[in-house]
Write a protein that binds this DNA or RNA. Structure first.
Lengths: 215, 215
DNA sequence: TAATATGGCTAATATAAATTAGCTAAGGAG
DNA sequence: CTCCTTAGCTAATTTATATTAGCCATATTA
């Protein structure tokens, strides 16, 4: 319930601008204007432009850690209860992915920060590694574990789990990046993801009959 | 055999710098220094910093059009000779992708320009659309046509061609972007791509027996 | 050879951007 | 009520950067 402080609004506005134009291309003046104050006033809250950037980074790292914890619990949950895996259907997966994409695309902070990372990813080896870790490896690893469970429960055919996870996750990641660039393609991307998951399951599901309408 | 002119060296150096730091973050002074001349001398060759950027864009567009034409011919070639499709094996595909990735990663201009596009992709709707077209759609469409041929030749199982192309291409695209960020992971990425293609073919090839060592 | 265009240079200019200094009003703590 | 911290402001400072002006040597061409 606490009202939005100026300090927070600066972060929000800066993230918004940085995610469109990149750190260098945005002036403190622009940030200040977006917040509705004058540039020198910013320095009452942050000691430099770089400091604003760092604060954004720290805050988003905090949120990320939070969310990672949730995902881990979610998976541990499913693993604890063996026969939950056998209940997983195409629709379950579609729904899960839709939620994920919806969140990733529509949470302003999350999507803006991802765009910012995309723009700044070549700046340092640390950011590069962070980007891969956060936006590729984590999702792949999550689905490796998921598929391992599904194979063990005889819901999915056996195979190279890593490659399977890649084939499942990468089209989703690419769709996400397309939507980051061209939000107007979101509906189309979502329906492609839907088709992709059904096709994927029709290829890898043990129960071929009802897995999808792939034709 | 014509020697490298200063005008060209400026483009090269500018592309190199832009692809690391982004347009805004690079000064004309840095470009000049990289070329080995003083900043004002640049203006004997290009009328502004923006003009350098535009020239890079135009030149890379030219090369791109050239290469697209080649790919089209390559495909038309294969289509003309029906039974060439049936000769396509896992190894053929692996080799083709290795060549493509090798070129995309090791041709300095191509890889730097892709990084530049990645950094600047949110600047305008035109660049956004160009990026998707160039780095996603084109490869997907190419493989849709390839797979259509392979299905028709009964080499691959039938299915949703678009989804199949996505599942094939996207892991490759993601690997490429990982290597752009972290060149040290290239060997690992290549072997993952190899495994991916074998797994993909083991899932979609009609002749399951010899398609891959996926286990 | 004379004339000219080319491509380099230094010095100058203009502007934008980040940051600092220092004033002031408002709101809470003593 | 008084004091002091907070958070805003304007004005000033510093530095960086893009670009222009104008000089000079070399090389091409008539």
């Amino acid at each position: 319930m606490k009202q939005e402080t100026t300090k927070d609004r600066i972060l929000l506005s800066a993230l918004d601008l940085f995610s469109q134009y990149g750190y260098e291309a945005v002036s403190v003046e622009q940030i200040a204007t977006a917040v509705g104050i004058k540039a020198p006033s910013l320095y009452k809250h942050y000691k430099s432009k770089q400091d604003i950037f760092n604060a954004i980074f720290a805050e988003m790292q905090r949120r990320y850690d939070e969310q990672t914890e949730k995902m881990d619990l979610h998976l541990a949950d499913a693993a604890a209860d063996k026969n939950r895996f056998s209940k997983i259907t195409c629709d379950t997966l579609v729904k899960e992915v839709q939620d994920l994409i919806g969140y990733s695309l529509h949470d302003e902070c999350v999507s803006r920060f991802r765009r910012l990372m995309t723009i700044e990813q070549f700046r340092s080896p640390e950011i590069s590694a962070l980007y891969t870790q956060r936006y590729v490896d984590r999702l792949v690893q999550y689905h490796e574990r998921l598929f391992a469970g599904l194979i063990h429960a005889d819901v999915m055919k056996n195979g190279d789990i890593h490659s399977m996870a890649l084939q499942y996750v990468c089209p989703i990641l690419i769709s996400l990046s397309v939507c980051d660039r061209q939000p107007e393609l979101e509906a189309q991307a979502m329906s492609q993801i839907d088709a992709h998951i059904r096709q994927f399951m029709s290829a890898y599901h043990t129960d071929l009959g009802r897995a999808g309408k792939a034709t």
